[in-house]
Design a protein around this nucleic acid. Structure first.
Lengths: 162, 162
DNA sequence: TATTTTTAATACGATATCGCACCATTATAG
DNA sequence: CTATAATGGTGCGATATCGTATTAAAAATA
């Protein structure tokens, strides 16, 4: 192998970028008109980690600027999948709540993807996924920790919080 | 572990999505004003695989709609990193050529990223990258093959051709 | 308590992404 | 050879992403 460490990094990140794109396309093929991966991501996050979170918390979790999250949440609100209400504990912020429609949107989407994932598992054993998951988690954690020190000075926001 | 296959898939794709985002941010931090990851991607592709390709070929390689690639190439042209000329063999298409500035743009960018990658390698051994690369390649290939059959009817374009 | 700094959200503008429609050219069918 | 279908590229409009600046509220500091 003619692999120097730098090329190796580029190659791994390249594969990961392609997988991200293909898997996103797979997901979005099952989403209703007008909703895309970030919408599903937020709903799923609220469902798994619990709702009643501020837009800023969600933006941190997804590592996107808060302005982007404002926009995404607005889309979810327009589709009736979340409700945004004032935060009684902090007059600056709001809290985002899942609606019943939001919860069923998540369930339906996952259900709709099962055939795709089964098809995938026929040619790529789940054991292989289990095999790479720890290494991916670690790589993610390392990259995460490497970002600009969380000096909290960088208010325009792009930090990740699981 | 309480992992059913579906959750496992979502988890792997989720990690991959985050890594994609973090690595892209890492790259873009080293790119000059006005250029983003897709610009670098196209230049790097032309450099590694050879230039003199049609926009459509490049769009396929990156799995993006041709209209997006038109836009990206326009940006590269504006920065003097590529030249677009008619294809003498096919009046419909054009060919994209790297300029000297384009080549050095790629070299400089990679050079600028070496410190980042070295920093990474201090906490995440290259062996681990080598360890997951084959599995990632296979996963990418499987997802790639799974896409809608290349019926060539879907002219609006989203197919990948390495 | 009064002042300053930090934080959350958003409006706004610039650029990016992408679907659709269109034109020109080439390939295919008859 | 002609008619039809397929292909490559782009204009256009809708939406997405994101940086900057602004406003309001809270936290920190004096």
């Amino acid at each position: 192998m003619d692999e120097d460490p730098v090329s190796l990094c580029f190659e791994v990140f390249n594969e990961i970028g392609i997988i991200e794109q293909l898997s996103r396309t797979l997901l979005e093929a099952r989403l209703p008109e007008g909703l895309i991966a970030p919408h599903f991501g937020v709903i799923s996050h609220l469902s798994r980690r619990g709702d009643g979170r501020t837009p800023m918390e969600i933006a941190r979790a997804f590592q996107v600027p808060k302005t982007s999250m404002t926009h995404t949440i607005k889309g979810l609100e327009a589709h009736g999948l979340v409700e945004v209400r004032p935060n009684p504990d902090d007059g600056r912020s709001k809290l985002v709540w899942l609606t019943a429609r939001g919860q069923s949107f998540r369930d339906e989407t996952i259900r709709a993807m099962v055939p795709d994932l089964n098809r995938l598992s026929e040619v790529y054993a789940a054991e292989k996924l289990i095999g790479i998951l720890p290494a991916l988690r670690e790589l993610r954690a390392v990259l995460d920790a490497d970002r600009d020190p969380p000096v909290s000075k960088n208010a325009s926001g792009r930090m990740r919080a699981v």
